Simulated scan of single mutants.
Amino acid sequence: MIRHVVLFTFKPGVDWSDPRVLEAERTAARVGAEVPELREWRHGRNVSTRPIACDFLVDGLLDDMEAVERYLVHPFHQDAIAQWREISDWVMVDVEQ
């Protein structure tokens, strides 16, 4: 199993009042239902006020790296990426479980 975790940080001038952010959040919430390779899907806003904290997280569980590759190119996931690219930068990790 592969745990796929992505942490998003808003670009300067972007915050939760931006309609693009709210749309990206709604899209992220639907990824788990739209991409069949995902066994689990979590998402959420950061609640920490620490300066090193990111703004948003997505966390998925997939069978293997082949499933990760299919997830990455899935059209719904690609739409989500396009939305988040406009408003944020991110880091990610894929970890074997």
Results as ranks from 00 to 15, higher is better:
residue 1 M to Y: 08
residue 4 H to A: 09
residue 4 H to G: 07
residue 7 L to H: 09
residue 12 P to V: 11
residue 14 V to A: 10
residue 14 V to D: 09
residue 15 D to C: 03
residue 17 S to C: 07
residue 19 P to M: 01
residue 20 R to I: 02
residue 20 R to C: 06
residue 27 T to Y: 08
residue 28 A to I: 02
residue 28 A to M: 10
residue 28 A to G: 10
residue 30 R to F: 01
residue 31 V to L: 08
residue 31 V to R: 02
residue 33 A to N: 07
residue 36 P to D: 07
residue 36 P to V: 05
residue 38 L to E: 02
residue 39 R to Y: 04
residue 40 E to V: 12
residue 41 W to K: 06
residue 42 R to G: 14
residue 43 H to Q: 11
residue 45 R to S: 12
residue 46 N to A: 12
residue 48 S to F: 06
residue 49 T to R: 13
residue 50 R to C: 02
residue 52 I to W: 09
residue 54 C to Q: 08
residue 55 D to V: 00
residue 56 F to Y: 11
residue 56 F to N: 00
residue 57 L to E: 05
residue 57 L to C: 09
residue 57 L to M: 10
residue 58 V to S: 01
residue 58 V to W: 00
residue 60 G to E: 03
residue 61 L to W: 04
residue 62 L to K: 00
residue 64 D to M: 05
residue 66 E to T: 14
residue 68 V to C: 02
residue 68 V to P: 01
residue 71 Y to A: 04
residue 71 Y to I: 04
residue 72 L to R: 15
residue 76 F to A: 06
residue 76 F to I: 01
residue 77 H to Q: 07
residue 78 Q to H: 05
residue 80 A to K: 02
residue 81 I to R: 14
residue 83 Q to C: 01
residue 84 W to F: 06
residue 84 W to S: 01
residue 85 R to Q: 14
residue 86 E to G: 11
residue 87 I to V: 09
residue 87 I to S: 04
residue 90 W to M: 11
residue 91 V to G: 09
residue 91 V to D: 05
residue 91 V to T: 13
residue 93 V to S: 05
residue 94 D to A: 12
residue 94 D to H: 15
residue 94 D to V: 13
residue 95 V to S: 12
residue 96 E to Y: 10
residue 96 E to I: 13
residue 96 E to L: 10
